Amino acid sequence: MQYEPGLSREQLIDLALHRYFAAVDRKDLGGALGCFHDEALFTVQTSHTRHAGRQAIARMFEDFFAAYATIVHRGFTCTVDAAHGRIAASFEAVLTGHDGSVTTLNNTNFWRVRDGRFQEVHVYMSGANVLV
C-alpha cells in the first residue's frame, strides 16, 4: 500500500536519523515511540521477529535499552523515495554492554512513513537479533 507523500527528502532523513536514531541512542523511549503510529509494525526480517503496535514496540525498546550501557548508530547512507514516503538507511550499530563488551552490527532499515510517522519498519541485521 502506498501512502500520500507528506515529507520531503530532508524531512524523511530528519525523521529517521535526527529524531528516531538520536532518541534511540539517548535511550529516550518517548522520543523513539513518538516516531511511530499506534498500529505500526516493526519487523526484524533476518530473524523473523515481529512487533505489532506501539505497546509491543515499547516493550522491545525497554528491553533493548536495559541490555546495553551505550547505544550508538553511525555511518549512515540513506536512500529516499519522498514521492512514496519511504526511506532506507544502512549504518553501523555499536552496542556496549554493561560488562564493557562491544557488539558491532552492520544493519539496513527500511521505513514506510504515513502522516509524518513510521507505519512500518523492516530491519536487516548482520548478527544476532538484539531487538527481541
Score class of each variant (00 low, 15 high):
residue 95 L to W: 04
residue 45 Q to A: 15
residue 131 L to M: 12
residue 130 V to L: 05
residue 100 G to E: 04
residue 58 A to G: 15
residue 47 S to P: 01
residue 20 Y to P: 00
residue 124 Y to D: 00
residue 96 T to V: 15
residue 38 D to I: 05
residue 64 F to P: 13
residue 37 H to D: 06
residue 54 R to L: 15
residue 62 E to D: 06
residue 109 N to K: 02
residue 8 S to D: 03
residue 56 A to P: 02
residue 14 D to A: 11
residue 106 N to A: 06
residue 8 S to C: 06
residue 47 S to Q: 08
residue 86 R to Q: 14
residue 121 V to Y: 02
residue 72 V to F: 03
residue 65 F to R: 04
residue 11 Q to M: 11
residue 73 H to A: 08
residue 53 G to P: 10
residue 64 F to C: 10
residue 109 N to S: 07
residue 115 D to T: 01
residue 32 A to E: 10
residue 62 E to H: 05
residue 97 G to Y: 00
residue 4 E to W: 05
residue 108 T to K: 04
residue 12 L to I: 09
residue 66 A to F: 03
residue 7 L to V: 02
residue 37 H to R: 12
residue 7 L to M: 12
residue 1 M to W: 08
residue 72 V to M: 10
residue 40 A to T: 01
residue 104 T to I: 15
residue 50 R to K: 14
residue 58 A to F: 06
residue 121 V to N: 05
residue 16 A to I: 06
residue 87 I to V: 13
residue 12 L to R: 13
residue 52 A to P: 01
residue 105 L to A: 11
residue 72 V to I: 08
residue 12 L to D: 13
residue 98 H to N: 07
residue 87 I to P: 07
residue 115 D to C: 01
residue 68 Y to I: 08
residue 13 I to H: 01
residue 118 F to D: 04
residue 41 L to T: 15
residue 88 A to M: 09
residue 28 D to M: 11
residue 53 G to T: 09
residue 12 L to E: 09
